[in-house]
Design a protein around this nucleic acid. Structure first.
Lengths: 158, 158
DNA sequence: GTAATTACCTAGTATTTTACTCAGGTAATT
DNA sequence: AATTACCTGAGTAAAATACTAGGTAATTAC
């Protein structure tokens, strides 16, 4: 289990989609502007998310991306693994022979801990995370603010 | 909250120390051989762990590193942050002004999730992780094996 | 139809991080 | 005094990160 800024981008972008799940697709341009991520980088991330079946793209005006499943059916762990951060990456990857014909201590301990972290993140869905009071308050505030200041910003925050 | 192979090295090395906590200090040379990490790289990691007060080094023959605190008083989260992976690393780091004078959505969502992951890992101590039956079984097996095959390997697995 | 909008794709690249190597220190034990 | 350990800093190859540039394809609005 790995966890880097790349995973953070993917998760927050997916949360953005989840927030606007009822309102139709969200364009990457909106997410890019919102979250300060370059458009092309987002495209690369979403290419993976799409190949993993987490999102679907809709071309043309009014298009964008939307979640393939309901927000309550997509976990944070799924998003992180979808962009390729679920790979174990131990030196002795598949090998059970990394040390004298047995698994090494590193392998055993880390795969165990990694699985626990995965299980933990697998229990957090996009919906469960958004539906909290504290997070919800921020979303409401942001929506109000941006609608007021720049209503043409797009669906992401409008 | 970040989590990379660097963090894995640190955590597994600390677990190694925790396993032999009753037996005196463990040398980096032993850990290096055990876990397949270069000695100098380990020295760099342990320099940080020492500065954070998680371990203490004992020089001279028979020396090595040992935990500063009891294994039940050191959490996995502490180890990861000690080597510098606890830093938030959002683009709008301390700034609450990253977007139009307000915190951005990314910042809010991720710091929230990051704190949850931290709390989770903070609940796992070196002792609690080792004392499980399944992990313990592996440790026992490894100790038996190495003692049999190469008794002079050192304290780490002997 | 045509033009605009959006997804989608490929290749290249600068920067940072990772993981390591080397070369020399300093300090404590025997 | 010799041994064995820790410490420091500089350098470096490989990988990951984050981005740039330039296309093609599908859909919508006119």
């Amino acid at each position: 289990m790995r966890l880097s800024t790349k995973g953070r981008y993917a998760v927050t972008a997916m949360l953005d989609l989840a927030i606007h799940h009822e309102e139709g697709p969200v364009t990457l341009a909106d997410i890019s502007e919102n979250q300060g991520i370059s458009l092309s980088y987002l495209e690369q991330l979403f290419a993976r998310l799409r190949r993993q079946g987490l999102v679907e793209g809709l071309r043309g005006p009014g298009g964008g991306y939307r979640l393939s499943r309901r927000p309550q059916d997509i976990s944070v762990a799924e998003v992180i693994t979808a962009i390729g951060e679920g790979i174990d990456a131990t030196q002795c990857e598949g090998n059970r022979d990394c040390q004298d014909g047995e698994e090494c201590l590193t392998h055993q301990l880390w795969t165990k801990l990694g699985r626990e972290i995965f299980d933990f993140l697998n229990g957090i869905t996009l919906a469960s995370f958004i539906e909290r009071d504290d997070v919800n308050k921020v979303i409401q505030r942001q929506q109000g603010r941006v609608t007021l200041v720049a209503p043409r910003l797009g669906k992401t925050l409008a």
